[in-house]
Design a protein around this nucleic acid. Structure first.
Lengths: 156, 156
DNA sequence: AACAAGAATCTCGCTGAGCGAGATATTGTC
DNA sequence: GACAATATCTCGCTCAGCGAGATTCTTGTT
């Protein structure tokens, strides 16, 4: 069993996991009258809420790769469903702050909860040293993939 | 450092990697006048070609989660760009076989090549035992995630 | 203070991806 | 040969997202 073979298998596995996660996201979207983009937006907003970063249409659009018109449309849809509220920033009154509602948080947990549980269970099969190895590998892959993307965006 | 913390961090890492891979796919699509769906279709067709499975509009549509009309549109676009050819199956003349062109294979390598190289490099930092651990973990995650998706599709 | 330049968001009209319904061609079954 | 099943395609429609520009507010300059 050569290292390179293991590398190729791992690439395939990562891709397969990615595909499955995407599909789950799509299913989830369909079940809640959302579009895949809306789910991505919700995840982004929940992340921001969790880390305390203020979210605005501008930051959201940048994360999603949408222009301002598309971003407005996403927020309109989420607001109509009651997952998000628009609030004028009192400091800089050009800006709009996006507040996620309780329903959005609950929605997020119903999406990620079972997934987190499953993966924590898989991790539970390994001892502490192996867990550290796995985490180190994923950190490495994340860095490598992020670097790859950055270099591709550069010579655009 | 509790196991559960490691589990959560790993979940976040996997999600981050997924997001990055998706973005790379989108960039790649934009650079080659393709839509994200077209890239997914190409990957699907290349996989089929590699494993020798005959690809048809029906199987492709099923993999992509599109209906027949949408599938026809995807194939039209790929055919117009010269990446795919339609060929009537001589056995069952209702069916159309999808043949990927050389250009599509080259396109696939230009997409995956650097990514594979990066990840193989990350794997190279670990010894054989750790590589086996990593692979085992990813297999476990893949199974878990696939099971999750299946159970969600079930009670639809 | 008045004004220009810039920033954040929204509105309008349009293109095109993907859907539903139905048409067309081919195959296996009775 | 009539008929249901299967594979693909056509047509018309909806709506996500884009480009261009309008609107509202802020900041720096004079």
């Amino acid at each position: 069993m050569h290292e390179q073979d293991a590398g190729l298998r791992v690439v395939h596995l990562l891709r397969a996991v990615t595909v499955e996660l995407d599909r789950i996201g799509e299913r989830f979207a369909a079940r809640h009258a959302l579009h895949p983009t809306d789910v991505r937006a919700l995840i982004c907003l929940l992340d921001a809420a969790r880390t305390g970063t203020p979210a605005t249409p501008g930051t959201l659009g940048a994360h999603l790769g949408l222009n301002s018109a598309g971003t407005t449309a996403v927020i309109d849809r989420l607001e109509r469903l009651g997952h998000v509220r628009r609030e004028r920033d009192t400091r800089d009154r050009r800006r709009v702050l996006l507040r996620v509602d309780e329903s959005a948080v609950a929605l997020g947990w119903s999406f990620f909860g079972p997934l987190i549980h499953e993966i924590v269970a898989v991790m539970g099969r390994f001892d502490a040293a192996d867990q550290a190895t796995i985490e180190g590998f994923l950190v490495g892959v994340h860095e490598a993939v992020t670097r790859e993307r950055a270099s591709r965006e550069q010579h655009l």
